[in-house]
Design a protein around this nucleic acid. Structure first.
Ligand SMILES: [Mn+2]
Ligand SMILES: [Mn+2]
Ligand SMILES: [Zn+2]
Ligand SMILES: [Zn+2]
Lengths: 151, 151
DNA sequence: ATCATAAAAGATACCTGGTCTCATTAAGAG
DNA sequence: CTCTTAATGAGACCAGGTATCTTTTATGAT
Protein backbone atom coordinates (compact mmCIF):
# COMPACT_ATOMS: atom_id res chain seq x y z
CA UNK A 1 0.00 0.00 0.00
CA UNK A 2 2.92 2.33 0.67
CA UNK A 3 4.10 1.73 -2.87
CA UNK A 4 0.71 2.70 -4.23
CA UNK A 5 0.78 5.93 -2.31
CA UNK A 6 4.15 6.86 -3.71
CA UNK A 7 2.84 6.10 -7.16
CA UNK A 8 -0.08 8.41 -6.52
CA UNK A 9 2.15 11.15 -5.16
CA UNK A 10 4.29 10.96 -8.27
CA UNK A 11 1.24 11.16 -10.42
CA UNK A 12 0.21 14.36 -8.69
CA UNK A 13 3.60 15.91 -9.28
CA UNK A 14 3.54 14.90 -12.91
CA UNK A 15 0.31 16.80 -13.27
CA UNK A 16 2.09 19.90 -12.04
CA UNK A 17 5.09 19.39 -14.29
CA UNK A 18 2.88 18.84 -17.31
CA UNK A 19 1.41 22.24 -16.62
CA UNK A 20 4.83 23.85 -16.43
CA UNK A 21 5.37 23.99 -12.67
CA UNK A 22 8.62 22.92 -11.07
CA UNK A 23 8.84 19.81 -8.97
CA UNK A 24 10.37 21.24 -5.83
CA UNK A 25 11.02 19.43 -2.60
CA UNK A 26 8.25 21.23 -0.67
CA UNK A 27 5.82 20.23 -3.39
CA UNK A 28 7.03 16.65 -3.29
CA UNK A 29 6.44 16.63 0.45
CA UNK A 30 2.96 18.04 0.06
CA UNK A 31 2.13 15.52 -2.64
CA UNK A 32 3.26 12.70 -0.35
CA UNK A 33 1.04 13.88 2.44
CA UNK A 34 -2.06 14.48 0.40
CA UNK A 35 -1.64 11.12 -1.29
CA UNK A 36 -1.73 9.59 2.19
CA UNK A 37 -4.85 11.40 3.30
CA UNK A 38 -7.97 9.30 3.22
CA UNK A 39 -10.34 12.09 4.20
CA UNK A 40 -10.77 15.71 3.37
CA UNK A 41 -8.40 17.88 5.35
CA UNK A 42 -7.66 21.51 6.16
CA UNK A 43 -4.62 23.63 5.45
CA UNK A 44 -3.93 23.37 9.16
CA UNK A 45 -3.91 19.55 9.07
CA UNK A 46 -1.38 19.74 6.29
CA UNK A 47 0.73 22.17 8.25
CA UNK A 48 0.81 19.88 11.27
CA UNK A 49 2.11 17.09 9.08
CA UNK A 50 4.69 19.33 7.43
CA UNK A 51 5.93 21.60 10.19
CA UNK A 52 9.15 22.36 8.38
CA UNK A 53 7.41 24.06 5.44
CA UNK A 54 6.69 27.75 5.49
CA UNK A 55 3.09 28.63 6.07
CA UNK A 56 2.83 30.57 2.84
CA UNK A 57 4.20 27.59 0.96
CA UNK A 58 1.45 25.40 2.35
CA UNK A 59 -1.20 27.79 1.11
CA UNK A 60 0.54 28.34 -2.17
CA UNK A 61 0.73 24.66 -2.91
CA UNK A 62 -2.84 24.03 -1.88
CA UNK A 63 -3.90 26.70 -4.30
CA UNK A 64 -1.72 25.26 -7.02
CA UNK A 65 -3.01 21.73 -6.54
CA UNK A 66 -6.54 23.03 -6.69
CA UNK A 67 -5.83 24.99 -9.86
CA UNK A 68 -4.23 22.01 -11.55
CA UNK A 69 -7.19 19.84 -10.66
CA UNK A 70 -5.40 17.57 -8.21
CA UNK A 71 -7.37 18.76 -5.21
CA UNK A 72 -10.90 20.00 -4.90
CA UNK A 73 -12.44 22.17 -2.23
CA UNK A 74 -15.16 20.76 -0.04
CA UNK A 75 -17.58 22.99 1.80
CA UNK A 76 -18.67 21.47 5.08
CA UNK A 77 -22.15 22.10 6.42
CA UNK A 78 -20.76 24.38 9.13
CA UNK A 79 -19.05 26.51 6.50
CA UNK A 80 -15.55 25.11 6.99
CA UNK A 81 -13.50 24.69 3.86
CA UNK A 82 -11.61 21.45 3.41
CA UNK A 83 -9.51 19.97 0.62
CA UNK A 84 -9.62 16.55 -0.88
CA UNK A 85 -8.10 14.55 -3.71
CA UNK A 86 -10.16 15.26 -6.76
CA UNK A 87 -11.63 13.21 -9.46
CA UNK A 88 -10.84 15.44 -12.38
CA UNK A 89 -13.75 17.20 -13.92
CA UNK A 90 -16.99 18.45 -12.55
CA UNK A 91 -18.43 16.48 -9.68
CA UNK A 92 -20.07 16.89 -6.30
CA UNK A 93 -19.77 15.41 -2.83
CA UNK A 94 -21.95 13.42 -0.53
CA UNK A 95 -20.80 14.49 2.91
CA UNK A 96 -21.66 12.46 5.96
CA UNK A 97 -22.56 14.79 8.81
CA UNK A 98 -21.97 11.96 11.26
CA UNK A 99 -18.51 10.60 10.51
CA UNK A 100 -17.31 13.30 8.15
CA UNK A 101 -16.56 10.93 5.33
CA UNK A 102 -17.21 12.04 1.81
CA UNK A 103 -18.13 10.27 -1.34
CA UNK A 104 -17.86 11.63 -4.82
CA UNK A 105 -20.92 12.05 -6.94
CA UNK A 106 -19.55 11.72 -10.39
CA UNK A 107 -22.30 12.09 -12.92
CA UNK A 108 -23.71 15.54 -12.51
CA UNK A 109 -27.26 14.93 -13.59
CA UNK A 110 -28.62 18.14 -12.14
CA UNK A 111 -27.02 20.15 -14.92
CA UNK A 112 -29.88 19.79 -17.36
CA UNK A 113 -32.52 20.33 -14.71
CA UNK A 114 -30.72 23.50 -13.68
CA UNK A 115 -30.42 24.52 -17.29
CA UNK A 116 -34.16 24.40 -17.71
CA UNK A 117 -34.95 26.14 -14.46
CA UNK A 118 -32.45 28.88 -15.21
CA UNK A 119 -33.74 29.38 -18.71
CA UNK A 120 -37.25 29.79 -17.40
CA UNK A 121 -35.93 32.69 -15.31
CA UNK A 122 -34.20 34.24 -18.31
CA UNK A 123 -30.91 33.22 -16.80
CA UNK A 124 -27.97 31.99 -18.85
CA UNK A 125 -26.38 29.25 -16.75
CA UNK A 126 -22.61 29.13 -16.53
CA UNK A 127 -21.87 27.07 -13.45
CA UNK A 128 -23.05 25.88 -10.08
CA UNK A 129 -21.84 24.78 -6.70
CA UNK A 130 -23.50 21.88 -4.92
CA UNK A 131 -22.74 19.98 -1.74
CA UNK A 132 -24.99 17.23 -0.41
CA UNK A 133 -25.24 16.45 3.29
CA UNK A 134 -26.59 13.39 5.04
CA UNK A 135 -25.61 10.07 6.55
CA UNK A 136 -23.42 7.55 4.84
CA UNK A 137 -24.38 3.92 4.62
CA UNK A 138 -22.39 2.75 7.62
CA UNK A 139 -23.51 5.63 9.82
CA UNK A 140 -27.17 5.11 9.08
CA UNK A 141 -26.71 1.41 9.67
CA UNK A 142 -25.16 1.89 13.09
CA UNK A 143 -27.76 4.48 13.98
CA UNK A 144 -30.57 2.00 13.34
CA UNK A 145 -28.79 -0.64 15.45
CA UNK A 146 -28.44 1.90 18.24
CA UNK A 147 -32.14 2.65 18.05
CA UNK A 148 -32.97 -1.00 18.34
CA UNK A 149 -30.65 -1.39 21.31
CA UNK A 150 -32.25 1.59 23.04
CA UNK A 151 -35.72 -0.05 22.99
CA UNK B 1 -41.35 54.02 -0.90
CA UNK B 2 -39.73 55.14 2.35
CA UNK B 3 -42.90 54.10 4.16
CA UNK B 4 -42.73 50.65 2.60
CA UNK B 5 -39.17 50.22 3.75
CA UNK B 6 -40.08 51.11 7.29
CA UNK B 7 -42.90 48.64 7.12
CA UNK B 8 -40.45 45.97 6.03
CA UNK B 9 -37.98 46.89 8.74
CA UNK B 10 -40.70 46.59 11.35
CA UNK B 11 -41.68 43.24 9.98
CA UNK B 12 -38.12 42.01 10.42
CA UNK B 13 -38.05 43.16 14.01
CA UNK B 14 -41.36 41.52 14.72
CA UNK B 15 -39.87 38.27 13.54
CA UNK B 16 -37.18 38.65 16.18
CA UNK B 17 -39.64 39.56 18.91
CA UNK B 18 -41.87 36.64 18.06
CA UNK B 19 -38.89 34.41 18.65
CA UNK B 20 -38.20 35.99 22.03
CA UNK B 21 -35.45 38.44 21.14
CA UNK B 22 -35.50 42.03 22.34
CA UNK B 23 -36.06 44.90 20.01
CA UNK B 24 -33.03 47.04 20.78
CA UNK B 25 -31.96 50.19 19.06
CA UNK B 26 -28.94 48.63 17.33
CA UNK B 27 -31.22 45.94 15.98
CA UNK B 28 -33.70 48.52 14.78
CA UNK B 29 -30.90 50.31 12.98
CA UNK B 30 -29.70 47.10 11.37
CA UNK B 31 -33.23 46.22 10.31
CA UNK B 32 -33.59 49.63 8.68
CA UNK B 33 -30.43 49.21 6.73
CA UNK B 34 -31.06 45.70 5.53
CA UNK B 35 -34.59 46.63 4.50
CA UNK B 36 -33.04 49.31 2.31
CA UNK B 37 -30.54 47.01 0.65
CA UNK B 38 -31.50 45.92 -2.81
CA UNK B 39 -28.58 43.58 -3.34
CA UNK B 40 -26.70 41.10 -1.28
CA UNK B 41 -24.19 42.76 1.00
CA UNK B 42 -21.30 41.97 3.32
CA UNK B 43 -20.86 42.52 7.03
CA UNK B 44 -18.44 45.25 6.05
CA UNK B 45 -21.04 47.06 3.91
CA UNK B 46 -23.34 47.03 6.89
CA UNK B 47 -20.63 48.38 9.11
CA UNK B 48 -19.96 51.28 6.77
CA UNK B 49 -23.60 52.21 6.92
CA UNK B 50 -23.74 51.89 10.69
CA UNK B 51 -20.40 53.20 11.90
CA UNK B 52 -21.71 53.91 15.36
CA UNK B 53 -22.45 50.27 16.13
CA UNK B 54 -19.88 48.02 17.70
CA UNK B 55 -18.30 45.55 15.32
CA UNK B 56 -19.32 42.56 17.41
CA UNK B 57 -22.89 43.82 17.43
CA UNK B 58 -22.92 43.89 13.65
CA UNK B 59 -21.81 40.28 13.48
CA UNK B 60 -24.12 39.24 16.28
CA UNK B 61 -27.14 40.72 14.60
CA UNK B 62 -26.26 39.28 11.22
CA UNK B 63 -26.08 35.89 12.84
CA UNK B 64 -29.36 36.46 14.61
CA UNK B 65 -31.15 37.58 11.48
CA UNK B 66 -29.86 34.54 9.67
CA UNK B 67 -30.98 32.23 12.47
CA UNK B 68 -34.43 33.75 12.55
CA UNK B 69 -34.78 33.37 8.82
CA UNK B 70 -34.77 37.07 7.96
CA UNK B 71 -31.47 36.92 6.09
CA UNK B 72 -29.86 34.19 4.10
CA UNK B 73 -26.23 33.68 3.23
CA UNK B 74 -25.14 33.81 -0.38
CA UNK B 75 -21.94 32.19 -1.52
CA UNK B 76 -20.38 34.10 -4.39
CA UNK B 77 -18.43 32.27 -7.06
CA UNK B 78 -15.16 33.66 -5.72
CA UNK B 79 -15.92 32.25 -2.29
CA UNK B 80 -17.06 35.50 -0.70
CA UNK B 81 -19.95 35.25 1.70
CA UNK B 82 -22.73 37.80 1.39
CA UNK B 83 -26.07 38.29 3.09
CA UNK B 84 -29.44 39.00 1.60
CA UNK B 85 -33.07 39.32 2.61
CA UNK B 86 -34.49 35.86 2.60
CA UNK B 87 -37.59 34.31 1.33
CA UNK B 88 -38.38 32.07 4.23
CA UNK B 89 -37.90 28.41 3.66
CA UNK B 90 -35.54 26.45 1.54
CA UNK B 91 -34.51 28.11 -1.70
CA UNK B 92 -31.51 28.79 -3.89
CA UNK B 93 -30.00 31.70 -5.78
CA UNK B 94 -29.33 32.51 -9.37
CA UNK B 95 -26.28 34.76 -9.16
CA UNK B 96 -25.28 36.92 -12.09
CA UNK B 97 -21.52 36.86 -12.45
CA UNK B 98 -21.70 40.02 -14.55
CA UNK B 99 -23.70 42.54 -12.53
CA UNK B 100 -23.81 40.68 -9.22
CA UNK B 101 -27.58 40.66 -8.99
CA UNK B 102 -29.28 37.68 -7.52
CA UNK B 103 -32.62 36.09 -8.09
CA UNK B 104 -34.29 33.60 -5.81
CA UNK B 105 -35.07 30.15 -7.06
CA UNK B 106 -38.03 29.20 -4.98
CA UNK B 107 -39.18 25.76 -5.91
CA UNK B 108 -36.37 23.39 -5.10
CA UNK B 109 -37.00 20.72 -7.66
CA UNK B 110 -33.60 19.13 -7.33
CA UNK B 111 -34.56 17.64 -3.98
CA UNK B 112 -36.14 14.49 -5.40
CA UNK B 113 -33.41 14.01 -7.96
CA UNK B 114 -30.85 14.30 -5.19
CA UNK B 115 -32.86 11.93 -3.05
CA UNK B 116 -32.66 9.26 -5.72
CA UNK B 117 -28.99 9.78 -6.46
CA UNK B 118 -28.12 9.71 -2.77
CA UNK B 119 -30.16 6.59 -2.15
CA UNK B 120 -28.35 4.83 -4.94
CA UNK B 121 -25.12 5.51 -3.08
CA UNK B 122 -26.57 4.21 0.20
CA UNK B 123 -26.66 7.76 1.46
CA UNK B 124 -29.44 9.11 3.64
CA UNK B 125 -29.97 12.68 2.44
CA UNK B 126 -30.49 15.38 5.02
CA UNK B 127 -29.72 18.62 3.25
CA UNK B 128 -27.88 20.33 0.47
CA UNK B 129 -26.32 23.62 -0.52
CA UNK B 130 -26.66 24.93 -4.05
CA UNK B 131 -25.72 28.17 -5.74
CA UNK B 132 -26.21 28.76 -9.44
CA UNK B 133 -23.99 31.10 -11.44
CA UNK B 134 -24.55 32.67 -14.82
CA UNK B 135 -25.81 35.77 -16.57
CA UNK B 136 -29.09 37.43 -15.81
CA UNK B 137 -31.54 38.39 -18.50
CA UNK B 138 -30.42 41.99 -18.83
CA UNK B 139 -26.72 41.16 -18.80
CA UNK B 140 -27.03 38.52 -21.49
CA UNK B 141 -29.14 40.95 -23.50
CA UNK B 142 -26.57 43.71 -23.36
CA UNK B 143 -23.79 41.27 -24.12
CA UNK B 144 -25.47 40.19 -27.35
CA UNK B 145 -25.97 43.83 -28.36
CA UNK B 146 -22.30 44.47 -27.68
CA UNK B 147 -21.38 41.54 -29.90
CA UNK B 148 -23.50 42.88 -32.70
CA UNK B 149 -21.97 46.32 -32.31
CA UNK B 150 -18.47 44.85 -32.47
CA UNK B 151 -19.08 43.27 -35.88
C1' DA C 1 -43.60 54.73 37.74
C1' DT C 2 -39.95 51.80 39.87
C1' DC C 3 -37.20 48.12 40.09
C1' DA C 4 -34.82 43.70 39.34
C1' DT C 5 -33.00 40.78 36.19
C1' DA C 6 -31.45 38.94 32.21
C1' DA C 7 -30.25 40.09 27.66
C1' DA C 8 -27.72 42.78 24.78
C1' DA C 9 -24.06 46.17 23.61
C1' DG C 10 -19.44 47.88 23.12
C1' DA C 11 -14.46 47.68 23.61
C1' DT C 12 -11.02 45.04 22.76
C1' DA C 13 -8.22 40.86 22.52
C1' DC C 14 -7.97 36.98 20.00
C1' DC C 15 -8.38 33.47 16.25
C1' DT C 16 -8.37 31.22 11.59
C1' DG C 17 -7.43 31.11 7.10
C1' DG C 18 -5.23 33.40 3.80
C1' DT C 19 -2.32 37.07 1.00
C1' DC C 20 1.78 40.29 0.24
C1' DT C 21 6.51 41.65 0.30
C1' DC C 22 10.96 40.91 -0.02
C1' DA C 23 15.37 38.86 0.47
C1' DT C 24 17.33 34.16 -0.42
C1' DT C 25 17.55 29.58 -2.57
C1' DA C 26 17.28 26.15 -6.00
C1' DA C 27 15.05 24.04 -10.45
C1' DG C 28 16.12 23.02 -14.73
C1' DA C 29 17.03 24.71 -19.63
C1' DG C 30 20.85 25.56 -22.43
C1' DC D 1 28.19 24.49 -15.22
C1' DT D 2 25.91 28.57 -15.50
C1' DC D 3 22.14 31.62 -15.73
C1' DT D 4 17.55 32.84 -15.25
C1' DT D 5 13.50 32.66 -13.21
C1' DA D 6 10.38 30.30 -10.30
C1' DA D 7 9.73 29.07 -5.85
C1' DT D 8 10.59 29.37 -0.85
C1' DG D 9 10.50 31.13 3.95
C1' DA D 10 10.01 34.73 7.34
C1' DG D 11 7.09 37.72 8.76
C1' DA D 12 3.83 41.62 8.33
C1' DC D 13 -0.63 42.17 7.19
C1' DC D 14 -5.62 41.51 6.33
C1' DA D 15 -10.65 39.92 6.47
C1' DG D 16 -14.12 38.02 8.70
C1' DG D 17 -15.58 36.39 12.81
C1' DT D 18 -15.63 34.84 18.05
C1' DA D 19 -14.62 35.28 23.20
C1' DT D 20 -14.38 37.83 27.31
C1' DC D 21 -15.58 41.25 30.22
C1' DT D 22 -17.83 45.37 31.89
C1' DT D 23 -21.55 48.53 31.27
C1' DT D 24 -26.04 49.56 29.54
C1' DT D 25 -30.82 48.76 28.48
C1' DA D 26 -35.32 46.28 27.50
C1' DT D 27 -38.82 44.22 29.56
C1' DG D 28 -41.91 41.92 33.05
C1' DA D 29 -43.24 42.11 37.84
C1' DT D 30 -44.46 44.96 41.40
MN1 LIG E 1 -14.30 16.50 -5.08
MN1 LIG F 1 -31.79 33.49 -0.33
ZN1 LIG G 1 -20.80 8.49 7.93
ZN1 LIG H 1 -26.63 40.49 -14.45
Amino acid sequence: MRKRVNALAEQLLETLEQQGYRSTSPRRAVAQVIANQDKHFTAENLREQLPSLGRATIFRSLKLFVETGVLCRVLLEDGDLHYQLSHRGHHHHLLCVECGSSQDLLGCDIEELLQQTSASHGFELSGHWLEVYGRCRSCSKSESSAELAAV
